[in-house]
Design a protein around this nucleic acid. Structure first.
Length: 233
DNA sequence: AACCAGGACGTGA
DNA sequence: TCACGTCATGGT
């Protein structure tokens, strides 16, 4: 298992290169070869995020991207940035109507506005340099396992593995898991068979998303996935 | 012009 | 627990 997961990782890394997640709107670099993205990625730079506002931006984006494509989230983030509202204080001050209006392009705007407010209040009241636990994040209404793990892995640099629908789809197609694996079961599979390394975890999840966008979109023929030939069962 | 996206929550069995 | 229904815009 360990060797198989490593094989997949290095194949994806060789194929697509470092992904530079999590994207930040105020980062000027970009990777134009990436599918369906506009800007904000910072491949090879693992020092990001540096500021408190950038950490907040990642948490915000993690909520906004729930079941939603990144380009639509980016639109929202850029709007907030243009209004100088891409920080927890201004978001908390914003009246709900305005916040809802700003979030609209990302969909589920009523729910997401509420989620954002709850997260923002939590973030502001968080003691400086205090790193929240996974359980604390999960206790917030609107923060589920993938959102919590994304915040930890990309925003707070905690080596915790992020699982998403694509991860499940790929592992299932490769015959590594069956349908009844839970989120935490899949997470454990990676964490128990990979070195506990921040960069590997960050890249692995991002690479899975990049690969899945090409071979595992809805309606795709999963048999065309090149991993099927690279990985022995 | 349907169909779907880097999920999470509420509900009833 | 679990299997559904709900939330919603905009891109392809």
């Amino acid at each position: 298992m360990r060797q198989m997961l490593l094989n997949i990782y290095f194949y994806l890394l060789e194929e697509y290169g470092p992904q530079g997640w999590w994207p930040l709107v105020d980062y000027n670099g970009c990777n134009p070869t990436k599918t369906g993205t506009v800007s904000g990625y910072h491949p090879g730079n693992y020092d990001i995020p540096k500021t408190r506002d950038q950490i907040f931006e990642i948490g915000l984006g993690a909520i906004l991207t729930q079941n939603t494509g990144w380009p639509q989230v980016e639109k929202v983030l850029k709007t907030l940035q243009r209004k100088n509202c891409l920080n927890p204080e201004r978001i908390l001050d914003m009246d709900n109507e305005t916040l809802i209006e700003n979030i609209k392009p990302a969909g589920y705007f009523n729910q997401k506005a509420r989620k954002v407010k709850i997260f923002t209040e939590y973030f502001i009241n968080l003691a400086q340099d205090k790193i929240p636990t996974r359980e604390e994040l999960l206790a917030l209404w609107g923060v589920g396992p993938e959102t919590a793990d994304s915040m930890l892995l990309y925003g707070l640099k905690v080596p915790t593995f992020v699982v998403d629908a694509y991860t499940r789809r790929i592992l299932s197609n490769l015959g590594i898991i069956n349908e009844k694996y839970t989120y935490d079961g899949i997470k454990d599979l990676f964490e128990k068979n990979l070195p506990q390394d921040l960069i590997i975890y960050q890249e692995y999840h991002a690479l899975i998303v990049e690969h899945a966008k090409r071979f595992y979109y809805k309606g795709a023929d999963y048999k065309k996935c090149p991993l099927l030939q690279r990985v022995e069962l």
